[in-house]
């Protein structure tokens, strides 16, 4: 099929412009968009640094599982709070960058947009935690669930405290407090033993309970943050 013939065929047809297309398109019921599609959209616009942090965390988990199998969980527990700090920073961007008013006037409520952003990062971080736990557990021989709770608890503690501080006047006026929280939790995870906290000796049940309680507290903070988005405009 040669190009010249194709062009001749195309040129042989000629139609007038439709006169009522625009009016009809404007009246057409807009296609439904689910939350999954919104999460996907927001994921595309999250800063690359956030995804890099996830990737780096996972890579370090895999490396430390091979090199320091005994200590790897403690090291990951000290690293993941920074991923949580970055996630908290990302949730405030609409307000900080003065995009909240424009986002609010779209088909989605600002609450949905912020929730979608949090969900996209949360899902990625959860995947990092679970994959890291699997890798670390293989290296150390410890149960995977215990490892997941041990490295997830510092992440959740940072997320909870970071989101709480963001809602206070202090947090609203100071951008990087969540990273300061991450540093503090990281230091505790790394050096807790040195100050007398028997973190590595804690039984699996204790880690599980701690992670569970922190997850509930974090979920509560997420809801309160979403409720506050109304005030961001």
């Amino acid at each position: 099929m040669n190009r010249a013939l194709r062009a001749q065929i195309r040129g042989a047809f000629s139609f007038p412009e439709p006169k009522r297309k625009r009016a009809f398109m404007q009246r057409l019921r807009p296609r439904g968009i689910g939350m999954a599609a919104l999460v996907w959209t927001q994921a595309a616009y999250i800063r690359r640094g956030v995804w890099c942090a996830c990737g780096v965390a996972l890579l370090l988990a895999l490396l430390s599982a091979r090199r320091f199998p005994g200590d790897a969980a403690r090291l990951m527990g000290a690293l993941l709070p920074f991923a949580a700090g970055i996630a908290v920073l990302e949730t405030r961007r609409s307000r900080e960058c003065r995009m909240a008013e424009l986002e609010r006037a779209t088909r989605f409520s600002l609450r949905s947009v912020v929730f979608a952003r949090m969900a996209a990062i949360g899902i990625a971080d959860l995947a990092v935690i679970l994959l890291s736990a699997a890798a670390l557990s293989l290296g150390s021989g410890r149960p995977a669930l215990r490892t997941a709770a041990q490295i997830g608890a510092p992440y959740l503690a940072t997320a909870w405290a970071g989101l709480y501080i963001e809602r206070t006047p202090l947090g609203r006026n100071h951008s990087y407090l969540s990273m300061a929280v991450a540093a503090a939790v990281s230091a505790l995870a790394l050096g807790g033993e040195a100050i007398g906290l028997p973190l590595s000796a804690l039984p699996s049940g204790a880690w599980g309970a701690a992670a569970g309680a922190l997850a509930v507290l974090t979920a509560r903070e997420v809801c309160m943050t979403l409720n506050m988005t109304e005030e961001w405009v």
Binding site: A44, Y45, R47, R98, M99, E101, L102, A105, R107, V113
Partner: peptide, 28 residues
Amino acid sequence: LGYLPQDFGYYPEFTVWDFVMYFAALKG
């Protein structure tokens, strides 16, 4: 609806193309 507020911001890493496409996505 289409809305242009008196004062609006942008995500600093956005190009002009990204800015318009972002809102196109949010508008479905």
